[in-house]
Design a protein around this nucleic acid. Structure first.
Length: 680
DNA sequence: ATAAACCTAAACAAGA
DNA sequence: TTCTTGTTTAGGTTTA
């Protein structure tokens, strides 16, 4: 930071006194002490306005993200349901990094949100951003999760063998020891067990139709009863059954324990635990028999993609399908480990379903509350239902040998699948892609077209008290560029903010200060003196200059963008980029039609992310701050003084969401550019 | 761990 | 004197 301002810091202000400590608070009182408090750690962004609002707590934010994640998960589920039936599809989809999102989702836990936050959640831009973020996050989580799962599985398996059904992993330590001792015996037992399983019916279970997510589990969970029994016989070195509870997720064996285990309800998500084990139904294991199943699918295999084995936690590289099959048969043969993994997978799926159901419910309630009728209660319910592909994963997936692999949570690699997310009626298509939690600057980083985003969600921002996911700088720039003259007085900028965003109708002191601060701080904003005052213009070159560093080449971003589900977003981005680069005004809805750009879709991240530089940025020395704007347009200083009035109101009681929207159509400039804006 | 980009708060100065 | 506009600092958060 110093750096930037440094150059200009020549100022010789006698600031000595101000120094640090002046605690005086003449300010608007909103932020009494240092901002510290208000912003509360992480969640800050959304809290931006938090000073007074202060609604978003870190936890809430987290929840928010989780919600988004669920959404993503749901989408994946839907996708699977719809197209997946054909294994082939999978392959194609897998092109991108296989994102196994769902799992991560399963690990999330719900929390409460305040109405306001909900609004935020629904904000298109935020949603979009959130989705993107979530994807990246999920990838990581998934990987980690798988690893852990595997480890746990292993341990648990061992444990179980030793102790018998009820043993919880807690005792792992002991169990391990015991395990070592009895390892041999165990193996033998295992073999027997496996044989039994095979006999019993590795055949898959029929996807029973579960009306609710939960039901699915029980049956699906099925694990061969015999197994437990066998293990039981072994007698484990004392392990209290109590612990079992903790395992919830992994409680594979559970079934054996059946009754007992149930007794102790898992703390977290009750449903899960019990799902595990219905009476022995061989189902689970079935899948494993991969060998047979794969063979069936000619050119591809659900567990094979991108040259590597998709078995949870495996990732072994296989040159071709043949090799993969071989690998599958050797490494993932029907053994205890594979079995356990299957069970885990089952659990994962079940958890996801449950979680999804819960979150869906909540989402619906939220949307209903916000008057945004989710036209899709069905979406998720579907998954739960016995829909062919997706529906109750647990059952279907697992049971059917073939489906099984697929059932593995790996989500169809997003990228490919054109997701048709559910969009709240009220939101524009653009909103869809918008993930959510978008960090405010995200848009900036993504070079996302603020203009397009704004154009498309104009109404939304105008009416919803949601903080726009753009930086002050980008907003200011947008405001300025939207005018014919490409110049605005400070007051006009203020007006633009309040007119365009409901959010900025509050806490005026705060954001206005921020606006002024940004104008002064960023070189891209050039102040031009006029007889009647001064106007601010944008030095596009400078503006563009500051972006590259952030955005370029961030693998993560790229990933996110690719896997970003909605290519709609890409389209929007692209369009916006174009619009921004060439003619900001183009951003008007009519011009930028998402649909039309469909063909452009296949952009590389680079294209999308790369800063659009309309100007021959030779990167040469950027003229110091006051250098004349190099923006193509000559800046002609306006004569007319800004009309100040309207905004002065400290907090224009926009109380209600619909506020002034109709608002002060003060700026004629704007209206010209964004016709229809005032319409609603 | 660090730097960069952002954000918020706040002190000040100049001018109306 | 008060308010607006600008400029700077400072400190905190997030992200790469």
């Amino acid at each position: 930071m110093m750096v930037e301002s440094a150059s200009e810091t020549i100022r010789s202000a006698p600031s000595g006194q101000n120094g640090v400590g002046s605690i005086s608070g003449q300010a608007d009182g909103s932020g009494g002490g240092a901002g510290t408090v208000g912003s509360g750690g992480t969640g800050r962004d959304s809290a931006a306005g938090a000073d007074s609002n202060g609604e978003m707590s870190p936890a809430e934010l987290l929840h928010f993200q989780q919600q988004q994640a669920l959404q993503v998960a749901r989408q994946f589920l839907l996708q699977q349901a719809s197209g997946l039936s054909s294994p082939g599809n999978n392959d194609s989809k897998q092109s991108a990094s296989a994102v196994q999102v769902p799992v991560s989702v399963a690990m999330m836990s719900p929390q409460m949100l305040t109405p306001q936050q909900m609004q935020q959640i629904l904000s298109p831009p935020q949603l979009q951003a959130l989705l993107q973020q979530q994807q990246a996050l999920m990838l990581q989580q998934l990987q980690e999760y798988y690893k852990k799962q595997q480890e746990q599985l292993h341990l648990q398996l061992l444990t179980q063998q030793q102790a018998g059904k009820q043993q919880p992993k807690e005792a792992l330590g002991n169990k391990q020891l015991a395990f070592q001792q009895q390892l041999l015996q165990m193996q033998q037992l295992q073999q027997q067990h496996l044989l039994n399983l095979q006999r019993q019916g590795l055949v898959s279970l029929q996807p029973s139709q579960a009306s609710g997510p939960l039901q699915t589990l029980p049956q699906a969970a099925v694990c061969p009863t015999d197994l437990p029994q066998l293990w039981k016989g072994e007698g484990a070195p004392g392990q209290p059954a109590e612990d079992s509870v903790k395992q919830e997720g992994l409680d594979l064996t559970g079934s054996a324990t059946t009754a007992t285990s149930f007794a102790a309800p898992p703390k977290v998500s009750p449903p899960l635990s019990h799902h595990t084990l219905p009476n022995g139904q061989p189902t689970v294991l079935t899948p494993r028999r991969d060998s047979s199943s794969h063979e069936e699918t000619p050119g591809s295999h659900p567990l094979y993609g991108h040259g590597e084995c998709k078995w949870p936690g495996c990732e072994t590289l296989c040159e071709d399908l043949g090799q993969f099959i071989k690998h599958l048969n050797t490494e993932h043969a029907l053994d205890d480990r594979s079995t356990a993994q299957c069970r885990v997978q089952m659990q994962v799926v079940q958890q996801l379903e449950i979680q999804l159901a819960k979150e869906s419910e909540r989402l619906q309630a939220m949307m209903a509350h916000l008057h945004m009728r989710p036209s899709e209660p069905k979406p998720f319910s579907q998954p739960l239902n016995p829909v062919p592909g997706s529906s109750s994963f647990s059952k279907v997936t697992i049971s059917a040998a073939d489906s099984f692999p697929d059932g593995l949570v790996h989500p169809p690699t997003s990228a490919a699948a054109p997701v048709t997310p559910l969009r709240p009626p009220g939101l524009s298509s653009a909103s869809l892609h918008s993930g959510g939690p978008a960090r405010r600057r995200s848009s900036d980083k993504f070079c996302s077209p603020i203009s397009s985003e704004l154009a498309q969600n104009h109404e939304f921002y105008k009416n919803a008290d949601v903080r726009p996911p753009f930086t002050y700088a980008s907003l200011i720039r947008q405001a300025i560029l939207e005018t014919p003259d490409r110049q605005l007085t400070l007051n006009e900028i203020y007006n633009w903010f309040t007119r365009m965003f409901a959010y900025f109708r509050r806490n005026t002191a705060t954001w206005k200060n921020a606006v002024r601060h940004n104008l002064s701080l960023h070189k891209c904003f050039v102040r031009v003196e006029n007889v009647k005052g001064a106007v601010w213009t944008v030095d596009e070159r400078e503006y563009q200059k500051r972006r590259p560093p952030k955005m370029t080449g961030s693998p993560t971003l790229v990933k996110n963008m690719i896997s970003g589900l909605s290519y709609g977003a890409l389209n929007a981005s692209y369009q916006a980029a174009l619009a921004e680069s060439s003619f900001p005004l183009l951003s008007s809805p009519g011009v930028l039609n998402p649909g039309s750009a469909g063909s452009l879709l296949p952009l590389s991240h680079d294209e999308v992310g790369a800063p659009v530089e309309p100007l021959p940025s030779n990167g040469s020395s950027s003229p110091p701050r006051l250098s004349p704007p190099q923006y193509s347009h000559q800046v002609q200083v306006k004569e007319e003084p800004a009309e100040a009035e309207e905004d002065r109101r400290p907090g224009p009681p926009l109380g209600p969401p619909n506020p002034s929207t109709a608002g002060p159509p003060e700026d004629r400039d704007l209206e010209e550019e964004l016709p229809g804006e005032e319409l609603s």
